[in-house]
């Protein structure tokens, strides 16, 4: 993580899109009167959803909507790394996990792919459609290496599968999130190796119970 600053080039103004206005109102109404400032993170997130990143005019718009000092909004926008303070790729923004488990499972070679296909880290590609950054652990270590692309996790990546994913995004498709090698969630790769005995599931091993282990024993008669 490095010092987080607002981007040098900023749009002149920002306004919530008409279809987002309702969501803004919903979030503000969620908090009791006088506590509207609590909606600052959801509102900044809506800004990011609409625009892809959080621009400086948007900070002022949010501050005004919540009647709070704009410096407080800036504090929050710079505190949380989930808020992008400069433009990201319009088609895909890749957040590649570079923390130890992913690194051990080959994240470094994926960085090479991203650098070759998109360009330098933390920068948009020349056409502005792609960008990538390295992030800290995203909590999917069982499926390392992985990357979050836009809103979804793409797991068990290899150089080839990451390249394919990028090609799909480039072609305007929305590739299915999850494991690139067909794992279900974080279940083991390939067919099941344990608990394969069909008798476990057909009820044949079931025996009548002699009694419940924690059943209340009746008091002995006097």
């Amino acid at each position: 993580m490095s010092v987080r600053r607002l981007a040098k080039e900023q749009p002149a103004s920002f306004a919530f899109a008409p279809d987002i206005q309702d969501k803004v109102a919903w979030w503000i109404a969620k908090f009791p009167p006088g506590r509207q400032q609590s909606a600052v993170i959801p509102l900044l997130w809506l800004v990011q959803k609409q625009q892809g990143w959080v621009c400086e005019p948007a900070l002022r718009v949010v501050a005004e909507a919540l009647s709070m000092p704009v410096i407080r909004v800036l504090e929050i926008a710079t505190f949380y790394t989930m808020f992008q303070l400069k433009p990201v790729g319009t088609v895909a923004h890749v957040q590649l996990c570079g923390t130890t488990p992913c690194m051990l499972r080959g994240a470094n070679s994926l960085k090479g792919v991203l650098a070759a296909k998109i360009g330098a880290k933390d920068h948009c590609s020349t056409d502005g459609r792609f960008s990538w950054e390295e992030v800290e652990c995203l909590g999917a270590c069982a499926n390392a290496p992985m990357a979050a692309i836009n809103d979804y996790y793409y797991e068990d990546l290899t150089e080839a599968s990451l390249e394919a994913l990028l090609a799909d995004f480039d072609a305007g498709k929305s590739p299915a999130p999850g494991s690139a090698i067909g794992r279900e969630g974080s279940a083991p790769e390939g067919p099941a190796l344990t608990l394969t005995d069909p008798r476990l599931y057909d009820g044949s091993r079931a025996k009548p119970l002699g009694g419940l282990p924690n059943a209340v024993t009746p008091e002995p008669a006097q």
Binding site: M1, L6, I71, L74, T78
Partner: peptide, 25 residues
């Protein structure tokens, strides 16, 4: 500035070792 002066112009931005005291822009 926030409590006594009532002019909330100074803030603490960023986090961790990068925190900085600043005014808005």
């Amino acid at each position: 500035i926030t409590e006594v002066a009532g002019v909330p112009d100074i803030g603490l931005i960023s986090r961790g070792e990068d925190v900085e005291i600043t005014t808005y822009l």
